[in-house]
């Protein structure tokens, strides 16, 4: 028996917004630790990893590990039937062929009950090695969304460069070029803060497909800040924290430098 009740049902709605255009369907692995889902886009350029720990839920029960093979277009259609302030409960049997979704309005005057049929998804799980990143940058998620959108007008590649105290995003194309630099904020302790941490103060610069960065920013509403981690010759990590008990992370393979 699996049952998970999420008071802040909007979290699930927002998380799926950040997933559904990248991964058509995925195995949502439920265990006593929580719910996780990993998947690649059809071109195998980006890996998306969602983690919802049991503490994120106000009620969580998972007697045996359960795999929910979900079609994300269908899942998204059903979640759109939930209001932003609804409480969402997911329920499934031990070896399920369907999953039950229950939406309760905040004042408990409306309940909606849905059943989604599960599919067998033959999907390999990739191992993500521990990496010491050369640079870790935190920026307001709305700012990152805007930069990715603005630079996409110039070409299909965005170069992210980190040097001491500064992160620079640039793009070049037929119409011209653009360069947007964010300087590290002073001692401001709020979500507007930009922080740049570097290992060994070595500048780091990598090129990425703007299309994928724009897909990732669909998760903007999950968190006020986004963390970017870079390492030469490694995938970029773009992380949105879901409170203290969850995260949506994207790993994006770099483009080959010309």
């Amino acid at each position: 028996m699996f049952e998970a009740r999420l008071l802040q049902g909007s979290i699930l709605k927002k998380a799926l917004e950040g997933i559904r255009e990248l991964i058509t369907s995925g195995n949502w692995e439920c265990s006593s630790a929580g719910i996780s889902m990993q998947g690649m886009d059809p071109s195998h350029v980006a890996l998306t990893v969602l983690m919802l720990q049991n503490d994120l839920f106000d009620q969580f029960r998972c007697d045996r590990n359960v795999t929910l093979g979900l079609n994300h277009a269908t899942f998204s259609k059903i979640l759109k039937c939930a209001a932003n302030d609804d409480i969402i409960t997911l329920k499934a049997e031990d070896q399920p062929d369907e999953c039950n979704l229950l939406f309760q309005s905040a004042n408990d005057d409306k309940t909606s009950d849905f059943i989604i049929k599960l599919t067998d998804i033959d999907q390999e799980t990739l191992g993500i090695p521990d990496t010491e990143y050369a640079a870790t940058v935190k920026v307001p998620s709305v700012e990152f969304q805007r930069i990715c959108r603005d630079l996409s007008q110039f070409g299909d590649t965005i170069i992210i460069s980190v040097k001491k105290g500064c992160v620079e995003f640039s793009g070049t194309g037929e119409i011209g070029s653009a360069k947007i630099a964010l300087k590290e904020s002073g001692n401001v302790d709020d979500d507007e803060k930009v922080s740049v941490e570097m290992d060994k103060d070595t500048p780091c610069s990598l090129s990425f497909a703007s299309r994928y960065l724009n897909y990732f920013t669909k998760a903007t509403s999950l968190s006020d800040t986004v963390t970017l981690q870079l390492c030469p010759e490694h995938p970029l990590v773009v992380s949105y924290d879901i409170g203290d008990n969850g995260s949506l992370k994207y790993y994006l393979a770099p483009k080959i430098e010309e």
């Binding site: 690649m40 890996l47 994006l252 393979a253 483009k255």
Partner: peptide, 14 residues
Amino acid sequence: MPGQRSITSFFSSP
């Protein structure tokens, strides 16, 4: 996609 590396060249199946 030209010039694009694959994520599977970095991460492998355990």
